[in-house]
Write a protein that binds this DNA or RNA. Structure first.
Lengths: 263, 263
DNA sequence: GGCTGTGAAAGGCTTCACAGCT
DNA sequence: AGCTGTGAAGCCTTTCACAGCC
C-alpha cells in the first residue's frame, strides 16, 4: 500500500482501530455517491460491495462508531454520511500547506479531492525565488522564507511535503517547529519527528515495486523454482541499477529540477 | 498508507508475508543509500533505524528471504541489495503504461523513481485527441485508440491509471483485456477486476482524511468528549459538503478537465 | 423474513527474548 | 562479546455465525 504511519504506536484513539479509521474514507465516498443519487437507505451488503470490502468487516467497523443502522432495514445514507464525516473531523475546515511546487506539488494543488472534503489549500510554498508570485491552481506560490509566518497566521496544522528527498527533513523540521502536527510526505525519505506528530507517507515507486513482486510470481508459476541464491555475477549485475535508484532518490518525487533547495 | 490491495486474499506467495513484501522497498532504499556511500556491512539495528522500522521486525522480515546475514557482524550491503532486488523482481525490466495524462499523469511520467528501478515508461496514453503527439517527459502522448496495440506490442503487464474516476473502470477493463495483470490506480474509484489481476490504489484524499482524524483527536484532548450523536441539524449541515465531495470524485485525480472521456 | 450488531474463533503481524553462530 | 535467526507470546484484524430487533 501506498501508505503507512511512522509514529503513534499503541494509542488507539477512542477505541476505534486504526484499520477501521483507514476504511472510513472509503465508506464515506461510497455513501456520498449514494446520497447524490438520493438513495435513502443501504444494506451492509450493498455498501460493502460499493466500497470494495466484505460486509462483515463493514458491520464490525460501523459497530465501533455506534449503532447507526436499523435491523431488518439497513443504514440511513444521509445519517451515516454525517456520522462518518464527524468522526473523521471533516465537519471542520482544515487549512493545509503544500511545500514543494514541482510537478507533483502542482498536481496536488489542482487535486479536487482535497478542496471538497474540508481541506483548504492555505498556501503553496517553494524554495525557488523564480516561482514566487506565480499562480498555481489559482494560488500564488510563496517563498520558503514565509513558511513560519504562513503556518502561524493561518493556524495550519497539516502540511504536505512534495519536495525532493534531500530537502524533506529540513522542511519537516520547520513545519513542526512552526506548529504543524500532521504531515503527509511524498518525498522518498524516512522523516524523523517528535512525539505527538503524525506522519503518513505516500510512495509512488514502492507501490510499483510491490506490484512487480506479485507480477514476477505470476510469471514464474510454471518454472521449477528459482532455487538458492544465484551468487554468480551479483555485484556487477546490480551496481548500475543501484546507482540509478540512489540518484533518483536524491532528486525527489519529481524527477527533474529540485523545487526546494536545502536551506 | 496510501495504499491497499483489492484482490489476492489468502495467497501468500512463496511464504513471504504481504506485510514483509510491503517493507522490502523501504529496506532497498536504505541499503541503496548505504551502498552509495560504500558502506560494506550494516547491522539490523542501523538498517532498521535508516528504514524507520524496529530491528526485530527487520530481522524477521529478512528471515523469510533466507539467512543472508552473518552473526556477530551484520549484513553485507551489496549482497542484500541484490537479494532484495531479485526478490522484488527488479532485476528485470518492467514496461509500464500511464493512462490519463492530466496533472497527475504528467507528474508520474516525470517521476524519477519509476525509471530507475526497472520500470520503463513504455507509453503515455490519453483520450484527448489534442494531446496526441505532444511530448510529456520526453515521450509523445498517444491516443486511447492505440491502447490495445501498445500493450500487446510492448508486452506491458503493469498499467497506471491516472484518469478521472468516471473513466477508470473502462480503462481498467481495456487494459486487462489487452493483457495487463497489475494495476496501480490513482482514480478515486473501486475497480472490479477478474481473478489473477492485482490492483493497488493510491488515494491522496484518503491519506489526508486519516490525518484529520488523528488531528481532531489531538485537539479535543481536553474537551469533555463529543458525546452521543448530535442529531440536531445534521442533514442540512452535511448536504453541501457531500455534494461538493461527490462532484470532486466525478472529476477525478486532477481537479480540472477530464483527460480521458468515457468511450 | 431480513438485516444489524457482536461474541467467539481463526489468522496474521509484531514484539520479545534468547539460542546459536562468528 | 556481538549480532543474527527464530520459536513463543501477545496483540490486532478479519471472518464466522447467530442472537436480537424490526
Amino acid at each position: 500500500m501506498a501508505t503507512g504511519r511512522t509514529h503513534r504506536p499503541a494509542t488507539r484513539s477512542r477505541g476505534i482501530p486504526e484499520a477501521t479509521v483507514a476504511r472510513l474514507p472509503l465508506y464515506l465516498r461510497a455513501l456520498t455517491a449514494l446520497s447524490e443519487r438520493s438513495v435513502p437507505t443501504v444494506s451492509s451488503e450493498e455498501l460493502a460491495a460499493a466500497a470494495g470490502v466484505n460486509s462483515a468487516k463493514l458491520r464490525k467497523d460501523f459497530s465501533y462508531l455506534g449503532s447507526y443502522g436499523t435491523r431488518g432495514v439497513g443504514y440511513d445514507v444521509e445519517y451515516l454520511v454525517y456520522q462518518i464525516s464527524r468522526e473523521l473531523g471533516l465537519t471542520q475546515d482544515w487549512p493545509v500547506v503544500i511545500v514543494g511546487i514541482g510537478n507533483l506539488g502542482a498536481a496536488l494543488a489542482n487535486y479536487g479531492g482535497f478542496a471538497s472534503r474540508g481541506f483548504r489549500v492555505a498556501a503553496l510554498i517553494d524554495a525557488d525565488p523564480a516561482m514566487a508570485g506565480k499562480p498555481v491552481a489559482g494560488i500564488a506560490v510563496q517563498h520558503t522564507d514565509e513558511l513560519e509566518h504562513i503556518i502561524e497566521s493561518n493556524g495550519v496544522s497539516i502540511g504536505v511535503i512534495a519536495t525532493p528527498a534531500g530537502a524533506a527533513q529540513q522542511v519537516c523540521d520547520r513545519l513542526v517547529a512552526a506548529g504543524v502536527t500532521s504531515i503527509l510526505n511524498f518525498a522518498p525519505t524516512v522523516l524523523t519527528v517528535p512525539d505527538g506528530v503524525d506522519v503518513r507517507k505516500v510512495d509512488l515507486s514502492i507501490e510499483l515495486q510491490i506490484l512487480a513482486f506479485h507480477e514476477q510470481r505470476k510469471a514464474g508459476e510454471e518454472t521449477p523454482e528459482a532455487g538458492a541464491p544465484a551468487t554468480s555475477g551479483r555485484a556487477a549485475a546490480v551496481a548500475a541499477a543501484a546507482e540509478a535508484a540512489a540518484a533518483a532518490d536524491r532528486k525527489g518525487p519529481d524527477g527533474d529540477v529540485p523545487a526546494v533547495m536545502p536551506a
